[in-house]
């Protein structure tokens, strides 16, 4: 069976809903290139003015950390409690700093 998605690249779509907010991942789609992905993303994910800006990124270009490895991956940062504001207990009258 010929299905065109097999010949096309997979893109991840990110949308900024309002100026000042961050781009948020909304889903993925197949397209030939970045320009086409952008047009498809507009047609598919912004039918109700959901955004003011769209990013499309080839899924294969995303390098992701493994959540299951999170323990060892983030370990080096966990032994620095002095980075947190709550680490510093101050006298009551000034604790609301």
């Amino acid at each position: 069976m010929s299905v065109i998605t097999e010949k096309l690249e997979l893109f991840e779509v990110f949308i900024r809903s309002k100026r000042g907010l961050d781009h948020k991942h909304v889903g993925s789609l197949h397209a030939e290139d970045q320009e086409q992905a952008l047009e498809y993303a507009r047609d598919c994910y912004t039918r109700r003015s959901e955004g003011v800006s769209i990013w499309v990124v080839k899924s294969s270009d995303i390098c992701a950390s493994q959540e299951d490895d999170a323990d060892s991956f983030y370990d080096p940062n966990d032994d620095k409690p002095y980075r947190h504001a709550t680490y510093y207990v101050l006298p009551d009258p000034v604790n609301n700093m």
Binding site: V3, T5, E6, G27, S28, L29, H30
Partner: peptide
């Protein structure tokens, strides 16, 4: 349909 096909594809089945 497209949202859902994409979601299913993340599980390793192809559109075709």
């Amino acid at each position: 349909g497209l949202y859902l096909y994409s979601a299913a594809e993340t599980l390793g089945i192809s559109r075709s």
